[in-house]
């Protein structure tokens, strides 16, 4: 490639964005096939388990969106997909909390990883909102009970007019549009930050994460 061509490309914003992205996350860092030896512990699996559960949540939620409430309340397949959606959410939260405990006791914000920690916290809060709007969108007596109880609580914060838990349409839209987008976007940012900064090393290990002896492709 000639110098003239390089100069032309450097004036394009898309070329500059690509250059910066590749510099921050070169392919071997974005999708590594080796991890530091200390990653060989079950506690490091819970982040990936959380994401796997999230994928099942999104896939089953998409199926529920296609067929709607009558289907998930009255047909056996609908009941099954509805249950998969509920139980994948339960597993999502259980895995996420164990992941949180593990990272808290590792002090995983060390080594300039504050933003990784903060995006994790924000995704946790966004997930709670997503789960809450899901519980009030079940279209059954349980969701009515939850919504009427939550109404008083949210009114007491002063936000009851903007975020009206008795407005089924609003809750459903938050649940299937805004919050899934928010959770997915924050989780992607969280994972990219983990790739960029590397997995936090144990307290006693002061060497750089990717410079230590490595294990195989699965970590």
């Amino acid at each position: 490639m000639s110098q003239q061509r390089n100069d032309d490309l450097s004036t394009q914003w898309s070329a500059r964005v690509r250059a910066r992205a590749v510099q921050a996350l070169p392919p071997d860092k974005l999708l590594p096939d080796r991890q530091p030896a200390y990653v060989a512990s079950w506690i490091y699996l819970f982040g990936a388990l959380t994401m796997t559960a999230l994928m099942v949540v999104i896939a089953t939620g998409a199926v529920l969106s296609i067929f709607g409430p009558t289907w998930w309340h009255t047909s056996s397949v609908g009941h099954f997909v509805n249950s998969l959606h509920l139980w994948s959410v339960e597993l999502f939260f259980a895995f996420m909390v164990v992941h949180l405990w593990g990272k808290f006791f590792m002090a995983a914000w060390r080594g300039n990883r504050q933003l990784t920690w903060i995006t994790g916290v924000v995704s946790f809060v966004a997930s709670i909102l997503a789960a809450f709007t899901g519980y009030v969108s079940q279209t059954n007596f349980d969701s009515q009970w939850i919504a009427t109880q939550a109404k008083d609580g949210i009114n007491s914060t002063g936000g009851g007019a903007l975020f009206n838990v008795l407005n089924f349409g609003q809750m459903l839209m938050w649940h299937i549009m805004l919050l899934p987008l928010a959770v997915t976007a924050i989780v992607i940012l969280h994972v990219l930050l983990v790739r960029h900064k590397g997995v936090v090393p144990p307290f006693e290990d002061t060497t750089e994460p990717l410079a230590t002896s490595a294990i195989g492709s699965e970590a």
């Binding site: 030896a37 060989a40 512990s41 079950w42 339960e90 259980a94 164990v98 593990g102 195989g216 699965e218």
Partner: peptide
């Protein structure tokens, strides 16, 4: 549920990971 999560957390710390040289440390 909370007790199962605590048990899972403790097991994840102590159960050796397959393929690790030093038993998961």
């Amino acid at each position: 549920v909370i007790l199962v999560m605590v048990a899972l957390f403790l097991l994840a710390l102590v159960v050796p990971f397959p393929g690790s040289k030093d038993g998961g440390e």
